[in-house]
Design a protein around this nucleic acid. Structure first.
Lengths: 262, 262
DNA sequence: TTGTGTGAATACCTTCACAGCT
DNA sequence: AGCTGTGAAGGTATTCACACAA
């Protein structure tokens, strides 16, 4: 680290900060786009702009992976694509099951970016017997009864829950019992899982509420600014010309581990 | 306008930390459930368990809102529901438009939690003329041409983008030009917006990649740990054997989980 | 000269632990 | 005695700014 030959390909899944991990997919997407345009190299500045972060952060992030850039030049696009893919574990195949094939489940099943990066929809599962056999996105829906055997037969370790909230914990328990160790939860519920199981959640309602909070604050500031300007007898500043929050603010990413109810 | 309702003394600076804001909806959901069961009060410990956080964090979070608890007793459920709702801006009505009514857009339109918290789907908008007039979730889909007038006529400040990636930036630009200042983006693209506009994104692919990273690491640790047991003949039995490695992240908001390995 | 890689500085978040109110 | 509210401590993440390689 200090001034020495940090030549070791840092290949180790060493302690990459979680915040960095969460941004790697972003970089990867930007890099893939560059790759498709046959761009050979990028600077941290350019890539950062494409990914919506600042360049210092990007360089710091990459420094955790190793020294993959060339000073004075930039990063080799193809090489970086490979390194990040490997780091994220995308060079292998990840069979995924989606449980709950309503509108949302169907949307997920149809989502192209799914297959594009090592993820393969191994099965679609729904509790409605009427759905069984019906193809969604070209894959026949299977009944919940098959859940355990599907997981085991396909070596599935990642499950996506797109059921109603009421069914989510039960589905989760079954997935975990059958061997799933990573869960992406779209149901608006806190899932509790044993240690060693990762849960990430995606929740429309929460995101909207966060937006509402900021929106409300904007309205307040605007009004206050207007009042101030009025008192000063000057024209109000063009409304939203304030340094609110980050313009290119991010998405989800977390906190909140599930706690075992003792 | 900004009601200067800081009648409380001391440490109540203008800004509630972003990490706290991101958890308020979680608390609110847990509190709502308690309220429906007519539970009058909760301790920080109980509420924290229901929300999937630890109690110190919860108390700290609440301390930013004010002193709404009673020492030795806990928090009044109804009162807290109100305070958090107000803080999040949910006591007012937020008209929302959803642009892009495919499977995902339809799923969002049908999502119940939407209306339940002050959000009202003001309009569904799609670029496909064939969709125009067709009702989805009881709301007729309108054509993209109407976008600007819909935004203005309904005073919409929050927009949801559920279009394909290729259309997202353009839709975003039009939303912003028409007056939208908060955007929830489901398209797998980085949106650029002017200052003063908030963007939050929800991205399936990114979430899966983050899970894959941790999954890969688990597999690696397992293999390393299993070196000694390798004599036992069994080959690659994926997962489902060990329950020792921790890691339980998850989450919303800008950035910030935290899981340290060893 | 250009742009990476990184110590150091800063900002932000979480957890601890206990004073203080009920 | 019980539980909140919060300073202080400990971590993590971001940003700065510059030495150094190409």
């Amino acid at each position: 680290m200090a001034t020495g030959r940090t030549h070791r390909p840092a290949t180790r899944s060493r302690g990459i900060p979680e915040a960095t991990v969460a941004r790697l997919p972003l970089y990867l997407r930007a890099l893939t786009a560059l790759s498709e345009r046959s761009v050979p190299t990028v600077s941290s500045e350019e890539l950062a702009a494409a990914a919506g972060v600042n360049s210092a952060k990007l360089r710091k992030d990459f420094s955790y992976l190793g020294s993959y850039g060339t000073r004075g030049v930039g990063y080799d696009v193809e090489y970086l694509v490979y390194q990040i893919s490997r780091e994220l574990g995308l060079t292998q195949d990840w069979p995924v099951v989606i449980v709950g094939i309503g509108n949302l489940g169907a949307a997920l099943a149809n989502y192209g970016g799914f297959a594009s990066r090592g993820f393969r929809v191994a099965a679609l599962i729904d509790a409605d017997p009427a759905m069984a056999g019906k193809p969604v996105a070209g894959i026949p829906v299977q009944h919940t009864d098959e859940l355990e055997s599907i997981i085991r037969d396909n070596g599935v370790s990642i499950g996506v829950i797109a059921t109603p909230a009421g069914a989510a914990q039960q589905v989760c328990d079954r997935l975990v019992a059958a061997g799933v160790t990573s869960i992406l939860n779209f149901a608006p519920t806190v899932l509790s899982v044993p240690d060693g199981v990762d849960v990430r959640k995606v929740d429309l309602s929460i995101e909207l509420q966060i937006l509402a909070f900021h929106e409300q604050r904007k309205a307040g500031e605007e009004a206050a600014a207007g009042v101030a300007a009025q008192a000063a007898g000057t024209t109000a500043v063009p409304a939203a010309a304030r340094e609110e929050s980050s313009a290119t603010d991010q998405g989800p990413d977390g906190d909140v581990p599930a706690v075992m109810p003792a």
